[in-house]
Design a protein around this nucleic acid. Structure first.
Lengths: 134, 134
DNA sequence: CGACTATGATACAATTAGTACAATAAAAGG
DNA sequence: CCTTTTATTGTACTAATTGTATCATAGTCG
């Protein structure tokens, strides 16, 4: 039942803690509508086994999302995406999602040896060339 | 696994600080492909014990390599050789690689419905908060 | 001496893992 | 049906392993 597989990609030497990566990616998949409100997430143990990490690490990620009111963890029952994300949560979630995406981008850029200047310059250039609305 | 022993040769009377010798030799072993990107280095304590030095000395060597973007040290997790192929890629390739990375980032951001303004603002904020050198 | 540097000792913080427990649901027995 | 038992699920607490920060010590060189 409804255990969409939630394919997460962990990078064990990316500098970001595993629990952060899990939380970020679940959040991102929600914003991306890959998972939807009301859906049940895998149990801490199931996801942990799939990702080959300790289930407490998954639990920690879930706790973060729970505190952010994105999911609801219920002892003995499971973990579910919050049904109706309140508007202020949505706003927060939106912001957090962009923040996480940006952080990943920068971590990767720095990992490739680029400097802040270079990143900043490239972003400006790229934004200028882009045809998106402001 | 993969705790290749990292046989380093220290000379306590060479005039060169221990931490310099450690850092230099690790770097040299990387250049000589004795150790490879992605690999985990011994923990500061393990290497310290092997070399009969204080683990702070190893930590200092690691910090130097970390700042030089050769390794990535992660509190609570360990120390890893940076993944990148850090050879002197040509300027053009370098530029292209950052460009591609940036484009992917923006495509994703726009797909999630963020505006140029939002992206720009988040990038600035994120750059400001980041501890990277310029 | 006095300042500087390398190294060591100690306490701390972050991440992950281990173990026992509590809440809920499902199954079994009557 | 109702109660009891069992399985499943998240929680709490603790321990182990890692790097970090701070200060002390010892040597070196002016």
């Amino acid at each position: 039942m409804a255990n969409k597989k939630l394919t997460l990609q962990l990078d064990h030497h990316s500098g970001l803690p595993i629990y952060t990566q899990i939380a970020d990616q679940i959040q991102s998949q929600l914003v991306n509508k890959i998972i939807k409100p009301g859906e049940q997430l895998p149990t801490v143990r199931a996801l942990a086994q799939e990702l080959r990490v300790n289930f407490n690490t998954v639990a920690r990620a879930y706790r973060i999302l729970d505190q952010a009111r994105i999911i609801s963890t219920q002892q003995g029952r499971g973990t579910y995406i919050i049904e109706i994300p309140p508007p202020e949560i949505s706003k927060k979630l939106r912001h957090a999602s962009l923040s996480a995406l940006t952080k990943r981008f920068m971590t990767e850029a720095f990992r490739l040896g680029f400097s802040k200047r270079e990143v900043s310059h490239m972003v400006r250039t790229s934004l200028k060339l882009n045809k998106e609305p402001n």
